[in-house]
Design a protein around this nucleic acid. Structure first.
Lengths: 186, 186, 186, 186
DNA sequence: TATGAATGAGGTTTCATTCAT
DNA sequence: TATGAATGAAACCTCATTCAT
């Protein structure tokens, strides 16, 4: 009744994880466009050809790395419970850890196949907005448009905070809560 | 004492203008990273080597194109007179015309030499914020931080508007004014 | 005293047969040069590494497939009994079935180790020629040279027939008999 | 009134000629499939990238080399005047010089774009056949089919002659004339 | 000043082959 | 005996940059 994955499968999954981690690292250092497959496999300490056993091309890893990051932020906000307050702190906490990667992926143009970070975040935020509007806590606005506004506001300030080397993320979180509340509360 | 620019100098300036226009066009089509020097010179209908008589590399043209765009938006807002209202309409008007280029330059990582669009806009917005705070119209916030917030809010919504093909820019402008006012007015 | 082949040996022979069939299939589809080991093992529904338990490399399978085909054509002509007439019909019958494979192997440059189809056919034809000359049915010519001539004549027309999608192989067979007889009979 | 091609254009044409010559050389040595772009540019003593200034890919050079060879053989036969006799000698003369290249191109599978040697030769031979049939010198046969037969007969014997190192091409030419005449004359 | 042919470093991708299981 | 993940050499192709004209 244990998970029945053969050792071979576990090793393959481990290699894939290594590649994803290496890609995240490299993307953070030189950006998605600046990253080369060779740099990723080198960082992962696997052979060059191994990359193509796990991904078709760079876009595919980038999409997978983006999905991972989105999932982590989603998990962090979900764990944090309801409320903009907790969610904002959680997002800032992840941002503090993964500033470089966040920067790389947020600026990434994405590919035909993947919407990248933006689409995923917009969708999550828009859902929250709809709830807020329905419960009367929020001013009535087009949820998708408002979600883009919030995304831009959060992303640009977070990346600014990270790039200027400030580490008092609570200050930023407070600003974000204050501003968002003022902007959209009913 | 008319301006004494020789014919050679005039021709050179004309060629430079051609290259800038071509670069803007190509950037809009394939992004800054996707653009090649050959594509730019071809679009400009100029020899390949000519590029290097006017610019050192792609970063330099991209910076120049970005400066041009910033200057045009600045001129538009300045012409529009004071007030967020007029400025927002002016920005949206330019965005409507240059959506593709705006997209390309805003996502561009920039270069070591140039801050790109972001730095220029942040600086302008921050100046406005300082004025607003001093005159008591605006809530007191860190002007640079607030400027990044406004930049992100505007940029992300404008690019969304353009990418979704909507052309009722007045609707967007109204949303932006409403939201910004709510977020930052005293 | 039945043939005592162990189960292991039987299974191994079966796997080899599977690989040969798969190789023939793949060669017909993409040519010998275009075929990859992976494509062959996939078609055979066998592990990639298994290939190397049976063959050293692609040239070796190609040679084996060619030998098979030659053997089948030889068997067909032998079964058909004596006479150019019957042999030609038999060759055309096989060609009709295996046009793609025939094309792939006939154009194949061969390897250092194997003469491929050409050598085998030339040898068989030359033997027939010598007999024909000895019995006085055939004009006296250098048998090997004449064999090459016949091979080229047959092969090029058969491949043309197959590639143009015609299926009235009797028409072709009649042409070949008529022409060969005219060319070489005493 | 002299040919008005600038020096630059002449130099470019010269480079192209160098590449064609080098490709012919390399194809003769290792076959079309075995040839690499690097080997061709090295043989031509030009930079690797230069290749792509003149040809899209290997298929395109191969087609150009094939066209050249066809044109040379066509010129040789045309110069030789009418009659199978002269034409056969002319073909053999070129074959003697270009045996290796002929071998490489004749075995080449060709590309989607180019019919290669085969198509060009078949067409020329078929034209001759139609004339022969109309004038009553030749037995009535499907001209395209007969052309393939003649092509196969000539090609296979010529390549045999070359590969076996024989240099009495007159002997071969005599065989070809004799055999073709017997096979197809009315 | 303008041109564009030539260059080659640098990236991507494939695939024969090995080897631990 | 069978497997298939891992490997890296080798091929392809692009494009920034130079330089002779």
């Amino acid at each position: 009744m244990t998970a029945t994955v053969s050792r071979g499968e576990r090793r393959k999954a481990e290699t894939r994880r290594r590649l994803l981690g290496a890609a995240a690292q490299v993307f953070g250092e030189v950006g998605v466009d600046g990253a080369t497959i060779a740099a990723i496999t080198e960082q992962a300490d696997v052979g060059l050809g191994t990359f193509y056993l796990h991904f078709d091309d760079k876009d595919e890893v980038a999409a997978a790395v983006a999905d991972d990051l989105v999932a982590r932020i989603a998990a962090a906000t979900d764990d944090a419970g309801a409320g903009i307050h907790a969610a904002t702190r959680a997002v800032c906490a992840v941002a503090a850890d993964e500033a470089a990667l966040l920067h790389a992926l947020y600026r990434w143009h994405g590919s035909a196949r993947s919407g990248g970070l933006r689409a995923a975040f917009v969708e999550r935020i828009a859902r929250g907005m709809k709830r807020g509007i329905k419960t009367g806590l929020m001013r009535k606005e087009d949820p998708t448009l408002a979600a883009h506004a919030v995304l831009g506001l959060y992303a640009e300030t977070i990346l600014y905070w990270a790039s200027s080397g400030r580490d008092d993320w609570d200050t930023l979180a407070a600003f974000l809560e204050r501003t968002t509340a003022a902007a959209f509360s009913a």
